[in-house]
Each structure stands twice: as structure tokens, then as C-alpha cells.
């Protein structure tokens, strides 16, 4: 009985799809989506990845014409969510946030999760870490700070989150490129890093831009260098690390994907949707409020970005482990 209904639904759907492509020859992707989409998010509701994804979906839903139901499957540093996503049916109706922590699982041997377990549709946002010091610190520039660290090996400390984590990796690459010995101290996250810096418990932090903005505005902290490929719009005086001569670009991205083997039409439809969302001014404004920037990378570019991140991570982890 249930098979019959399924078959009838299937016939109706494909008939509808055939009809719509007959009626609207221009709408090549009308066949996807035909029903609501499930979305797996590996971080908790209300967190950074969750917020970024939900803002993107607010605009993407309107364009796709179907609801997207987000499920937060958390834990294991994202391993549980990614594992659930990669073993889901690759029919285009279970999608997942593909973000900057996906490449970490292989080099860290955390869980059997590979970049190529997923079909990647597009990116939609990124953020880059920034080097922060106290406003009254003696260093005027990144070069000053690096020189001082070289003159006083092991005396200057940089606050990061976890060892081998999001901030530690680019910091280790920077230390390698600049030739100073890194003395890192760990904190739970950006707010704690900022407070530790203000309290004089560390000399600098490498962290997200957003949580430090109020202190910079008050003249308590200052930015020395930004790890993105281009300068920040709001802080045009802060140079990027590569401008100063340290070859480090670290853009932590957020994007869309699904389990490997998704229908081509679904992937293309999602990539096209993302391309349209990138250009919505309200979307850009909402990202800006969170300290994020639009990342215009389609399927192939974003996959390449992930692989580049993985090789950078592998290098950084080797440096960190000595």
C-alpha cells in the first residue's frame, strides 16, 4: 500500500517536473527542490556557525521556494554532525554547513571525516583572525612586535583558543613566516581572550575581529594586522599580514554542501541560489553585524579553498608539534 502511494507521488512529482520544464523552458532547475530540505548543523543553536547559516538560509529559502529545516547535531568538535551528514542519503534533501573546521579531522586524526566525503555547492561567508594588542603597548606596528618577540624569546605571550585550533594554526604559520618563537596561552574563546589581554595576562591575542571592536573604539585595544586576503572595510589602516611580508592568509569559511553523490541538478541549483544570495544587500549587512564578510566562491573554488586549508593546517600542526 505504502509502495503504491510512493510510486504515485513519484509519478506525480516527475510529471510535474516534466510539465514545469515544458511550461518554463528557461527555469532549468525547477526540478529541485520539490519538497522541504533538512539541514544538519554541527554546532549549537545560537552559536556563530548556527547564526551565520540561519541568516544565509533566510534568503536562500525564499529563492528555493521550499522550507529548510535546521537540526543542530552537536558534539565531538563537529564530528557527530559531519558523520550524520556524510552517511545521509545523497538525494539533495539533506544538506550540511560546510565550514572551516571540516579540513581538520584528517590531519588531526580526530574522526574518519574527509573533505571528499561531501559534495560542495558554494561558500557564503568568511571571517579572518586579527592580531590585537593593548592600545598603550609599545609596538606601533606588526614589525615592531615581531622584532620585540625576537629580541626577547619566550617572554611575549599570545592568547589563542585551543592548541592546534582555529587561531593557533594561523598564528603558528605567522611565527614560522616571521621567524619568531611562539609562546601561546590558551583561553576558552574570544571574549575571554579580550579580557585576558585587557588584564595584562597576555601581550597579544589572535582572535576574531568582532568581540574586540568595543575595546578598540574605547581606545583600550588596537589591531596590528589582519589575516584576510584584503584589508577590512571598517579598519582600512590595519594592514594584512601578507602586505607586511608574512605569507599568511587565513579565511575561515562557511558554505553549503551535502553527502557525496548528490544529483547534479541539486548542486547546480544550490550554487546558483548562493550566487544570488551573495548579492543581496540586506544579507551583506546582516553578515557585517556579525563580523563576517561575503565569500564569493562557487563549487570548484570552495572545494579548492578547503583543500588549501587542509594543507595549511597540516603544515601548521607540524610546526605546533615541533
Amino acid at each position: 500500500m505504502s509502495i503504491k502511494i510512493n510510486r504515485r507521488e513519484l509519478m506525480l512529482t516527475s510529471a510535474g517536473a516534466a510539465l514545469s520544464s515544458l511550461l518554463f523552458p528557461g527555469a532549468a532547475f525547477a526540478a529541485y527542490p520539490t519538497r522541504n530540505i533538512n539541514w544538519i548543523l554541527m554546532w549549537r543553536a545560537g552559536g556563530g556557525a548556527d547564526t551565520a547559516t540561519r541568516i544565509f538560509l533566510k534568503y536562500a529559502e525564499k529563492m528555493l521556494g521550499k522550507k529548510v529545516i535546521v537540526q543542530n547535531i552537536t558534539g565531538g568538535g563537529g564530528a557527530i554532525g559531519y558523520t550524520a551528514a556524510k552517511s545521509a542519503k545523497p538525494d539533495g534533501y539533506t544538506l550540511v554547513t560546510i565550514q572551516g573546521d571540516l579540513p581538520k579531522f584528517e590531519p588531526k586524526a580526530l574522526a574518519p571525516i574527509k573533505i571528499d566525503d561531501f559534495d560542495i555547492a558554494a561558500a557564503f561567508a568568511f571571517q579572518s583572525p586579527v592580531v590585537v594588542v593593548r592600545a598603550d603597548a609599545p609596538w606601533k606596528s606588526l614589525e615592531d612586535f615581531v622584532k620585540d618577540m625576537k629580541d626577547n624569546p619566550g617572554k611575549r605571550t599570545i592568547g589563542i583558543s585551543d592548541i592546534g585550533g582555529t587561531y593557533h594554526q594561523p598564528t603558528a604559520l605567522w611565527a614560522d613566516a616571521a621567524g619568531f618563537k611562539l609562546k601561546a596561552v590558551t583561553f576558552p574563546g574570544s571574549p575571554q581572550q579580550a579580557v585576558a589581554l585587557l588584564g595584562g595576562h597576555v601581550d597579544a591575542t589572535v582572535t576574531w575581529v568582532k568581540p574586540n571592536i568595543p575595546y578598540v573604539k574605547e581606545g583600550k585595544l588596537k589591531f596590528l594586522g589582519y589575516m584576510g586576503s584584503k584589508r577590512l572595510d571598517d579598519y582600512p589602516d590595519v594592514p594584512t599580514l601578507s602586505e607586511v611580508g608574512y605569507d599568511v592568509v587565513w579565511e575561515h569559511p562557511y558554505g553549503i554542501g551535502g553527502p557525496k553523490g548528490m544529483p547534479k541538478e541539486a548542486l547546480v541549483a544550490l550554487e546558483e541560489t548562493a550566487k544570488k544570495v551573495w548579492e543581496v544587500p540586506e544579507f551583506q549587512a546582516e553578515l557585517d553585524k556579525l563580523g563576517l564578510t561575503v565569500m564569493r566562491k562557487g563549487s570548484a573554488d570552495y572545494r579548492a579553498h578547503m583543500h588549501k586549508m587542509q594543507s595549511d593546517m597540516t603544515k601548521a600542526l607540524k610546526l605546533i608539534q615541533g
Partner: peptide, 18 residues
Amino acid sequence: MIAQSPRFTFGVTELLIG
């Protein structure tokens, strides 16, 4: 939480949750 390596998980992915 500091070094981000598995601890007492015995290779079970779910135990990564802690």
C-alpha cells in the same frame, strides 16, 4: 579541550562528544 585530541574514546566517534 586544549590540544583537541581524543581522550578515553577508544575509537568510538560518539565518545568524542564526551
